[in-house]
Nucleic acid binder design. Structure first.
Lengths: 96, 96
DNA sequence: TTGACACGCAAGCCGCTACTTGCCTATCAT
DNA sequence: ATGATAGGCAAGTAGCGGCTTGCGTGTCAA
């Protein structure tokens, strides 16, 4: 588990990204509460925590700590590389 | 297994997309040969075939049959929906 | 200092999926 | 018709990942 594609494969992680897109900078408990509210997902705190670890490891989520709070922020820049990978412009050195 | 994210989660399927991006309209056997050549993947024909099924089911690959040949073509349009999902422009009816 | 709160660590279970194996169908050349 | 080529179908196996469970750590208020 190391790249953006794996991170996006889990529906729960996509729901987390949706939540952060709707309200950026949430804590773990906020996310747990709102995920069960809106998306109806029955996820424990640990489950969400593990998902956030994955999302952070691939750069889709950035975090800042303040005291005992840890805020999570969405970062979509890794997504652009996905589309670019199979875009029509052939890679630079390829034309020969 | 039904959406684009799951389809992209497997490295082998991404390699197949890479191959089709490099040379569009290949048959199953062509893909098998070139995948073992270039990417060094030890994939059987059935493995590649099953991957192509998945890619086709989510619309990333289109196919045409001619006699006993089946040609596979890359289609990147499903990829754009991924980026749009978490783009900055809030969904239309949301501003309230 | 004590308790509550926000979060982290680690092991275990279970289902899904990638891959294999074996056999079958269809198309083409001779 | 017969063999070779291109591809399809189906069941079984093994490993990984999502989720749980239980406990531990750090921060804040009273």
């Amino acid at each position: 588990m190391a790249d953006v594609f794996d991170a996006l494969s889990a529906p729960a992680r996509r729901a987390i990204l949706d939540e952060l897109h709707d309200r950026d900078g949430q804590t773990l408990f906020e996310l747990c509460a709102r995920l069960t509210m809106k998306h109806g997902l029955g996820l424990t705190r640990q489950a969400v925590s593990q998902h956030l670890e994955v999302l952070e490891s691939v750069g889709l989520v950035k975090t800042t700590r303040q005291g005992r709070y840890k805020f999570h922020y969405l970062d979509t820049t890794p997504l652009h590389t996905i589309v670019r990978r199979w875009s029509r412009e052939k890679a630079k050195g390829r034309k020969r």
